[in-house]
C-alpha cells in the first residue's frame, strides 16, 4: 500500500500503536483514581522542565522527564492531603507548571530552540525518539502485567487495598513514575494532544461495554489502536493534520456509542411496555 511506502508513515504507525497500547493501560487507572486530566497537567508541566533544561544547559528531554516526575509526585502528595477533591491537585500542579514554564521561558535565549522541544508530531519521529518510546512501552507493559492485581485494587479502593496487604505506597510510586516518564516522552514525540486524549477517550468508550476490569482494559486498548490506525489512514488520504484527526475520531466514536446506547435503551423500554 502506498501509505506504507514511506518511512515516516511506518514510524507513525509503530509509535502510534505502541502508545495506543500503553496509554490506555495507564489511562484506566488514572480514570478510576479520578485523575483523568493528569495527562494534560503533566505535559504542560514538562514545558517548564524543557525551559529549565535549556537554561541550565542539560538535555531538555531529561529536564522534561524530571519536571514530570516532580509534578506527578506533587499531584500524588496533594491528592493524599485532600482525597475528597483529588482533581484539585491536578489543577494546582498544572497552574504551577504553566506559570513556571512562562517565567522560565523568558530566560531562554534562543526561542527557536525552545519551540523545537515543545511540539512533537506523530509524522516526524526521529530514531532516538522511536527507541525511547519502545523502551518505555516495554517498561509500562511489564509493570502493568506484573502489578496487574495490585494496581486494580489500588485504583478501585486504596484503603481496602492497604488492608489486603498490598504495598500501596510502593506501587503508587512506581505507577506515578511510569506515568510521568510516559507522558513527558510521548508528549515530546507525538504531541500533548494525542496523549491526554488517548488516556481518557478509549477508556470512556470501553466503559460502555466492559463488564469487568479486565474487559475494560482490553477494550480500551482496542479502541485506542483503532482510533490511531484509522486516524493515520484518514489523515494521510484526506490530507488532514494527524494529531487532531486521531483525537476527533475518538470523540466521534464515543458520542456515537453513547447515542446508540440511548436509542437501544429507548427501544428496549418501549418493547417492554408492549
Amino acid at each position: 500500500m502506498a501509505i506504507f511506502e514511506y518511512d515516516f508513515m511506518r514510524r507513525a504507525f509503530i509509535v502510534g500503536i505502541l502508545l495506543a497500547i500503553i496509554i490506555p493501560c495507564i489511562g484506566i487507572i488514572v480514570v478510576l483514581k479520578r485523575l483523568s486530566m493528569i495527562g494534560d497537567a503533566l505535559s504542560h508541566t514538562s514545558l517548564a522542565g524543557v525551559a529549565a533544561g535549556l537554561i541550565m544547559g542539560i538535555n531538555p528531554i531529561l529536564g522534561a522527564i524530571a519536571a514530570c516526575i516532580a509534578a506527578a509526585l506533587g499531584i500524588e502528595a496533594i491528592r493524599k492531603r485532600i482525597p475528597k477533591y483529588s482533581e484539585m491537585s491536578i489543577a494546582i500542579i498544572m497552574s504551577a507548571g504553566v506559570g513556571l514554564a512562562g517565567v522560565l521561558s523568558g530566560f531562554v535565549k534562543n526561542a527557536a530552540n525552545f519551540n523545537s522541544f515543545l511540539f512533537g508530531s506523530i509524522v516526524a519521529i526521529s530514531d532516538f525518539e522511536m527507541i525511547l518510546v519502545a523502551c518505555i512501552s516495554c517498561a509500562v507493559i511489564l509493570a502493568f502485567i506484573l502489578l496487574y492485581k495490585e494496581l486494580f485494587y489500588i485504583a478501585l479502593d486504596e484503603r481496602s487495598a492497604r488492608l489486603a496487604g498490598i504495598p500501596v505506597k510502593t506501587v503508587n510510586f512506581i505507577f506515578t513514575i511510569l506515568t510521568a516518564v510516559t507522558v513527558s516522552v510521548a508528549a515530546r514525540t507525538v504531541g500533548a494532544l494525542i496523549i491526554s486524549s488517548l488516556m481518557v477517550v478509549p477508556v470512556a468508550c470501553a466503559m460502555e461495554f466492559g463488564k469487568s476490569y479486565k474487559q475494560t482494559v482490553l477494550y480500551s486498548i482496542c479502541f485506542a489502536v483503532f482510533f490511531t490506525v484509522v486516524g493515520l489512514f484518514l489523515a494521510y488520504y484526506a490530507r488532514l493534520k494527524p494529531g487532531g484527526t486521531i483525537v476527533l475520531i475518538g470523540v466521534f466514536c464515543l458520542v456515537l456509542i453513547l447515542f446508540a446506547k440511548k436509542i437501544m435503551a429507548k427501544i428496549l423500554l418501549t418493547m417492554n411496555k408492549l
Binding site: Y6, F119, S121, V123, A124, K241, G243
Partner: peptide, 14 residues
C-alpha cells in the same frame, strides 16, 4: 511556518 505537517504533503515532497 508553524503548523502540524500533514502526511500526504510530506509524501508528495519525498
Amino acid at each position: 511556518p508553524d503548523s502540524e505537517p500533514d502526511p500526504a504533503r510530506m509524501a508528495e515532497i519525498i
